[in-house]
Write a protein that binds this DNA or RNA. Structure first.
Lengths: 217, 217
DNA sequence: TCCATATCGATATATTTTTCTCGATAAAAC
DNA sequence: GTTTTATCGAGAAAAATATATCGATATGGA
């Protein structure tokens, strides 16, 4: 055993790492070789120690007075996030959000390779969206098994989300990325990540409402 | 002064409130009149005390042995989140993500009313997407002022995000919902909320990678 | 009517996350 | 060659967040 990468890391840290990655990839493109925590922190208005602690989990070590190697950070963060080898994914629900995700070119850079889409609407089945086939939902279980697909993306309306998730899990899907505004019940061992825009929106509208109220008074 | 709604509340609480709201709206539709924290907590695998604390910020009070009024919760949570009167918003960038957001019918329920879209691509300008006009970006500043639009949604590629945000802020936009995978620099007082999918994806792919590694060993 | 119980609200404790402090070290300045 | 300074890594302190405890209270059943 070389390194113990299986450290459980807080969600907060995990969510900051892509920010750092984006930054250091930019620096790499510019030919910059080293970067300090202080510099990274300044970019995001974070505390330098926090940045150092975050980087620590990736296994990358820095040098005093020099900082961290930019290439080292790119490699280690990508590796830590599991973004070096993209995982195959199936998407269910070729509505607006589903289409938008299918059209997003950069997911492969973020560890995700959407292989095909599924829909129960027979009019959509057989078509292609951004080059990706839309298949009948009934085909999903067999294909998950045959192709060893790990990730399922749920983009269906709230009322269909649970049955779709169940279908995926029974087929052997190991992780679900849920865009439906519904809480999913999933068995232990299966990974669930909610990408609920309404939560983000709640933070925004609450802040805005408070701001408008306080400035008025 | 009646109630002091201007309490600053943690992001975590703010993000859980929409979950509760969704649940109690469902209960309301079923005709249920009261619900306890214990019941809500069970639904999401949260701690009942946490749910009680979250609800406390909305100003709704419960009754021992009975729980909280379902209608009371619906009203108070929606009010607290600022979802009773939708704020007008302009969206910039009518690409895939932009289109998906324009097509999302339910935003009005979540306090957001997308009034129009803007794009610098002259081929898109003049068209309509899901009934919403696509206008030239140069028209944005005047319209923000005339229509008193508060929210700006940034759906442009990373490299254009900052100039677009600057344009919005100079025009008087008070809150920005950012979908671009780029950190935005904004002046104090302006509200920024990032809806970055890559952060959510990072949590998912990291968990999955760890899971696959540990089960293999 | 009285007792058992579910639930609330308030307070206290525990845990997690963030920030601060400090000695060590490597590069740059003198 | 010595001093100064930026930065790291480790550990301590502070702040934020989540969980547990407990008395009060309202309902339902003995």
């Amino acid at each position: 055993m070389v390194a113990l990468k299986s450290v459980v890391v807080s969600r907060s840290t995990l969510k900051r790492l892509p920010l750092y990655l984006h930054l250091v990839e930019g620096l790499y493109a510019q030919g910059v070789e080293h970067v300090s925590c202080t510099a990274i922190a300044k970019e995001f208005d974070f505390d330098p120690t926090q940045v150092r602690k975050d980087i620590e989990v990736t296994g990358e070590v820095g040098t005093a007075r020099v900082g961290f190697s930019v290439t080292g950070l790119v490699i280690r963060i990508r590796e830590f996030l599991g973004w070096n080898n993209a995982h195959d994914a199936f998407l269910v629900g070729a509505g607006n959000m589903g289409k938008a995700l299918l059209g997003y070119k950069d997911f492969e850079k973020y560890g995700l390779n959407i292989v095909a889409a599924f829909d129960k609407d027979t009019r959509k089945v057989g078509s292609r969206i951004f080059g990706k086939e839309v298949l009948a939902l009934s085909k999903l279980p067999n294909l998950v098994k045959r192709m060893h697909v790990h990730i399922g993306i749920v983009c269906v309306p709230a009322e269909h989300a649970q049955p779709v998730a169940d279908l995926m899990i029974n087929a052997g899907i190991q992780a679900i990325w849920n865009f439906a505004p519904a809480p999913l019940r999933i068995p232990e061992g299966v990974i669930l990540e909610n990408a609920r825009l309404t939560q983000s929106l709640a933070v925004l509208t609450n802040n805005l409402t408070r701001k408008l109220n306080t400035t008025k008074e």
